[in-house]
Each structure stands twice: as structure tokens, then as C-alpha cells.
Nucleic acid binder design. Structure first.
Lengths: 144, 144
DNA sequence: TATTGTTATACTCTATAACTATA
DNA sequence: TATAGTTATAGAGTATAACAATA
């Protein structure tokens, strides 16, 4: 059987769990859940509608409402009426939210450095290329 | 600045989220959460104490109790008294749980194949090697 | 005394269903 | 009629604190 593919799947799953543990820690350091961390990361350079966020994250709109409620209450983001659709609501980071996004990004890079730091520059380039190749542009949810 | 390392971190995070989405879907197909899926996967070929499971997953013992309660109620696993420590409780999969573990493993492989399938055999080998290299044997929780 | 595990409590995450307002 | 978003409800995941039993 495909012994080679087997080992790859295991390595990919293992590396993903390890990466997620780092992200989780980074989020917890800022009193955020992993999902909140994602929302902040996505909104760092975008303004999106509630339904777009939900679709990209694979969550129900009602779940999104709750997440936004709690983040808004903490001053991380704000709701704005869409300028083109009377039914829609846009979400953007507040200045405080943008500052938080910067801190988180730095924190994630630092947290991941023990993993990536052992690679040579050539290996980093090769790994990045291979990871981008398996990201399958079709099939995953896209941002508008 | 380290422009190269930056792209790698992003690719790693992105690939991890995509992988997690696949695992989540596989778990949902069997009415499991991601954490339950991990528990089943870990116990597939091991018998562990509650506290070892909690430590490896980075969860509190009380959280572990709840997870085990629900899985036990569904007939996936069972609690057994430790043979060496009167305070400890071992956890193992039931035959039904082991069958479930097999189905999940196949399901995960199938779910991930669109990602890994685009690589040549040589690329798979290279990617697996690089992923294993960043798994940093020190720093992550270990199984006993 | 320290460790193992459970229980009680509280909060977040998540989905489903029912609803309002707009397209 | 269909879509965008909210609210109500319920269950799972999670942590903290208090506890019983064993080491």
C-alpha cells in the first residue's frame, strides 16, 4: 500500500496539532479563543460582512453573532451598516483591535520560531513552497 | 527583516487550519468533536491514565473527566482501575471504539488526499521529512 | 502532604429554529 | 421569495475551586 503517503498524513496531522497548540497558547495569552484569534487575524487588513466571515470560518451566522458580540463588548471590533446592502452588517477592527492583531502576529511568530528555527534558509523556502502547493486553492472557502 | 521566515509561518498556519478543517469534518461525520477524535486516535493503540491523557492534550483533569464521561456513555471507551495505583483510572477503547478509530483513520486519509495527492512521490518524501524536522521532540508534551 | 480523579459552577463555542428587515 | 442578521435555546468544551480517596 501507499506507505509513503501514510507517513506524510501522520506528519501533517501532527505538525498541525503542534501548530494549533502554539496558536491556542498565543490566543490564551491575550484572553482569546482560537476562533477569536482567527477573526482578529482575518480582519487585520479587511472589512467583511458577518456572513462572509461565517462562510470563511465554516460557522453558522448565529455563531458569528455571538463571537462578534463578545469581541465588540471588549472593544476589539465594531459593527457598521453596509453601504451597499441595507440588510448587511460590516465588521472591522477598532484601533485597539488593530494593535491587538499586531501583538498577536508577533506572538505567533515567536511561538512558532522554535519549530521553524531549526531549518536552514533553503529548507524554509522548500517547506513553504510545498505547504503552499498542498493548500489547494479550490475546495477551501475563499475570502471575497 | 526575515522575509523568508515570515512566509513560512503564514504557510504553516494556513496549512494547519486547512488540515484542522478536514479533521473537524471527519470528526463531525462520526458525531465527534475534534478533541474526541484526538482521544480516540491516541487510545487506538494505547491504554492511558486520565491524567496522562489530560497532560498530553493540554487539558485540565476535570475537562478530561467530562470528555471521558460522554465517550463512555456512547460505548466508545471504558474506565478501568489502574493495576499499580489505587488512585488512578485507566482508559481504553471498547471493540466498538477500536472499529471507530479504524474508520476515522481511513476517513482522515481520504479527506487529506486532495491536499497531498498533488505531490509527486519525491515531494511527499521531502515534505514529510521537513515536517518531522520541525516537530521538535523537546517542548511538546510526550506520551508515557 | 501530595497526587488522582470527580463534582459543582460558570462561561465560551456551536448548531438549530424562529424571527425581523431588506432585496 | 430569498437573503442578512439577531435572538432563544440547548449541548459540548473548557477552566477554577472544592472535595474524597490513595500514595
Amino acid at each position: 500500500m501507499d506507505r509513503e503517503g501514510y507517513g506524510l498524513v501522520d506528519a501533517l496531522v501532527q505538525a498541525s496539532f503542534t501548530t494549533m497548540a502554539v496558536l491556542n497558547k498565543a490566543a490564551a495569552d491575550h484572553d482569546l479563543s482560537l476562533t477569536q484569534l482567527r477573526v482578529v487575524g482575518i480582519l487585520a487588513d479587511r472589512r467583511l460582512r458577518v456572513s462572509d466571515l461565517a462562510a470563511y470560518l465554516g460557522l453558522e451566522k448565529s455563531t458569528m453573532s455571538g463571537l462578534i458580540d463578545r469581541a465588540e463588548k471588549r472593544g476589539i471590533l465594531t459593527r457598521l451598516p453596509s453601504e451597499t446592502d441595507g440588510r448587511a452588517v460590516d465588521v472591522t477592527l477598532t484601533p485597539a483591535g488593530r494593535a491587538l492583531a499586531d501583538r498577536i502576529h508577533a506572538r505567533v511568530r515567536a511561538g512558532l520560531s522554535p519549530m521553524t528555527g531549526g531549518l536552514t534558509a533553503a529548507e524554509k523556502t522548500r517547506l513553504r513552497g510545498l505547504l503552499e502547493k498542498i493548500l489547494m486553492p479550490n475546495g477551501s472557502p475563499r475570502l471575497p
